[in-house]
Every structure is written in structure tokens, then in C-alpha cells.
Amino acid sequence: MLSVRGEDRIVQILEWQWGLMQRMLKRSVSVLASLGVMLGGVIAMAPTASAATQYGCPGKKIASYSVTERNEGFNLSNVYLYYDGATGKNCVVNRRTGLGEFGTRARLEVHLWAVGGQSASDVGNFAEQAGPISISAPGRCIRVKAVVHTVSGYYGDLEFGGFCG
């Protein structure tokens, strides 16, 4: 059985621990609040999808697709298609993701063509993106093909269309 003195000591220890936890919680909240303010500033400064030029393509983004690895299904790159109403041109880029080994040079392709009209391609060993490439395709449907290879041996490709003007 504990004496009154022993019980008082236990109460003191518990009060001290409770105070310590409260101080730690206040510091954590303060740090998280500061981090939130900093991240909010970064997010507020990030370019929006309606930016005049993104990844080298002027105009408005009209589509984006993921190129997935053919066996594993993870995202190797993103393909962004833009239309510039001022010039009447379509523009496309194929941009690596982290899993697509962004920053590492390996074969990357992007092709853009108007059915029965102009075409353009950018093919090479690129670390970040293939493109931008642009064509003018008034009154025609356009198609896009993107191919990704990584130095680790992963591969993905994608073809899409249906954008007619």
C-alpha cells in the first residue's frame, strides 16, 4: 500500500508528464501550422492549368492521359494536349513521371498528326519530356501517340484521338 507521500509523488509525476505532452502538442501544432502556411504559399504560386504556356505548349489544355507500364500498370509519363485558339494549332508533350525515371535519359517519343494532313514527331533520349510539337489541323481530326522506355527496362505506349476541328 502506498503512503500519502508516495501517492503525492505519483500525482506529481503524472502532472509533469501531462504538462510535457501538452507542450509537445502545442509545438507540433505550431510546426504544422507553419508548414501549412509555407505549403499554401507554394500552392498559391504554382502555375495553373490555364497558364499561357505549360511545358512549352501555348493555349488551353484540352486533354491529358497517362502512359502506363504494359505489365505492371504504373504511370510512366503524362501526355498533355493543348489547343491555341489564337494560332489554330494543336500542341502535345510527353512528360516523364518519377516512376518513368524523370531526369534519366532514355527513349521517349511523341507523335501528333492530323488525319489526312500534317504530322510532327519528337523522338530521342530525353530526361524529362518529348515535345512540345505542334501542327495546324483546321477541319481535321488529330491523333497522338506516346512511347516511353526506361533504363530499367520498363515500357509503355498510348495512342488516342477523337479531337476534331
Rank of each mutant, 00 (worst) to 15 (best):
Thr97Ile: 03
Val93Glu: 02
Phe102Arg: 00
Val110Cys: 06
Ala86Thr: 11
Lys61Phe: 01
Tyr80Leu: 15
Ser64Arg: 09
Gly100Leu: 01
Gly59Met: 02
Gly73Ile: 10
Pro47Arg: 08
Tyr55Ala: 15
Arg107Ala: 06
Met38Arg: 09
Ile43Met: 13
Glu69Phe: 05
Val79Gly: 10
Val37Pro: 05
Ser77Asn: 11
Gly41Tyr: 07
Arg70Ala: 13
Lys89Tyr: 06
Gly100Lys: 01
Ala49Tyr: 07
Tyr65Asp: 06
Asn71Gln: 11
Ser66Cys: 07
Tyr65Ala: 14
Asn71Trp: 12
Leu35Glu: 15
Asn94Trp: 02
Glu69Asn: 09
Leu81Asp: 00
Phe102Leu: 02
Pro47Asn: 08
Ser66Asn: 12
Val92His: 03
Gly88Leu: 10
Asn71Ile: 12
Thr68Phe: 05
Asn71Leu: 12
Arg96Ile: 00
Lys61Pro: 04
Thr97Phe: 01
Cys91Gly: 00
Lys60Thr: 11
Cys91Gln: 04
Glu69Pro: 06
Gly73Met: 15
Cys57Pro: 01
Met45Ser: 15
Glu101Ile: 02
Thr48Asp: 13
Gly98Tyr: 05
Ala106Leu: 02
Pro58Ser: 10
Val67Gln: 04
Leu81Cys: 09
Ala51Leu: 09
Gly98Val: 02
Pro58Asn: 01
Asn94Val: 00
Tyr83Met: 14
Ser77Gln: 06
Gly56Phe: 03
Glu109Ala: 11
Leu108Cys: 00
Ser64Met: 06
Gly36Asn: 14
Gly85Pro: 11
Lys61Met: 15
Tyr82Thr: 13
Ile43Thr: 10
Thr104Asp: 00
Gly85Cys: 08
Glu101Phe: 01
Gly59Asp: 00
Arg96Pro: 03
Phe74Asn: 10
Cys57Gln: 08
Ala52Leu: 12
Glu72Arg: 15
Tyr55Val: 07
Leu32Met: 11
Gly73Ala: 12
Pro58Lys: 10
Asn90Trp: 14
Gly85His: 13
Leu32Gly: 03
Gly88Cys: 10
Gly103Glu: 01
Ala46Arg: 13
Thr53Cys: 09
Ala63Lys: 12
Asn90Asp: 04
Cys57Gly: 05
Pro58Tyr: 03
Ala52Gln: 12
Tyr55Phe: 13
Glu109Thr: 14
Ser66Met: 07
Ala44His: 11
Ser50Trp: 08
Ala49Gly: 12
Val92Ser: 01
Ser64Thr: 10
Ala44Phe: 14
Val31Cys: 04
Cys57Tyr: 03
Val37Cys: 08
Val79Ala: 13
Ala51Ser: 15
Thr104Leu: 02
Thr48Trp: 08
Ala63Pro: 03
Arg107Tyr: 08
Ser34Lys: 14
Leu32Ile: 09
Lys61Tyr: 08
Asp84Gln: 10
Gly98Trp: 04
Asn90Ser: 11
Glu69Lys: 07
Gly59Thr: 02
Gly73Val: 09
Ala44Thr: 07
Ile43Gln: 11
Ala52Asp: 13
Gly100Arg: 02
Asn78Gln: 14
Leu99Arg: 08
Arg96Met: 01
Leu76Thr: 08
Met45Pro: 04
Lys61His: 09
Leu35Gly: 06
Ala63Cys: 05
Ala52Glu: 13
Tyr82His: 15
Thr68Glu: 09
Val79Pro: 07
Thr104Val: 00
Ser34Asn: 14
Leu108Lys: 03
Gly100Ser: 05
Pro47Cys: 04
Ser50Cys: 03
Met45Asp: 13
Lys60Met: 08
Lys89Cys: 01
Glu109Asn: 15
Leu108Val: 00
